[in-house]
Amino acid sequence: MAKASKDAGTGRAEKAREDLIKSLLQPVPVTPEKIAEVKRRVLGQLRTAAAKGDKEALVMRFPNALCTDKGRALNNNEKDWPSTLIGRPLQAFEFWRDHLKSQGYGLKAMIVDWPQGLPGDVGLFLTWGDAKR
């Protein structure tokens, strides 16, 4: 019975992950209002992190399935890793490039978990100050 319960939980988790991937594949309509809203939200998050003395903040976490190579280029720190992004992660990169990079914010991407020793979720971090990259 415990195994059946665990299997059912795993099935629900896999379904939730599939639903998340489907959702993140759908781009968000980009309007001036949406850009302003995202800027306010992200900059508020960065102010909170900076007030705590942090030099970076996780701004997006997503399954590696939203990289065309499952995160290989990113994990190997290849220069063209952004070209592997799809869906909303690509939009997040473009938002940084178009609206935050010129303000001195860096962007760091890395695999943030390793289920069963394999690359898992990707984290996008905005950086500033000494942590800027």
Rank of each mutant, 00 (worst) to 15 (best):
A2F: 09
A2N: 09
K3A: 11
K3E: 15
K6V: 11
E14G: 06
A16H: 05
I21T: 02
S23C: 12
V28Y: 04
V28E: 13
V28T: 14
P32A: 09
P32I: 06
E33W: 08
K34I: 10
E37K: 12
E37D: 08
V38I: 09
V38D: 13
K39I: 08
K39G: 00
K39H: 09
R40C: 02
R41M: 13
R41S: 11
R41I: 11
R41D: 13
V42R: 02
V42G: 01
L43S: 01
R47C: 08
T48W: 09
T48E: 15
T48G: 12
K55F: 14
L58C: 13
R61P: 07
F62E: 01
P63N: 09
N64K: 08
A65I: 00
C67W: 00
C67R: 04
T68W: 02
T68Y: 01
K70T: 02
K70S: 14
K70L: 15
G71D: 06
R72P: 00
A73I: 02
A73V: 02
N75F: 00
N75T: 02
N76C: 01
K79P: 05
W81H: 06
P82L: 09
S83D: 15
S83V: 13
S83P: 00
T84H: 14
L85G: 04
I86A: 10
G87I: 01
L90G: 06
Q91I: 02
F93L: 10
W96G: 03
R97K: 14
H99W: 03
H99R: 05
L100C: 04
S102L: 10
S102R: 12
Q103K: 12
Y105K: 05
L107C: 06
L107D: 03
K108L: 10
G117N: 05
G117L: 04
P119M: 07
G120W: 01
D121Q: 11
F125R: 07
F125C: 04
W128R: 03
D130E: 15
K132Y: 12
K132P: 04
R133N: 12
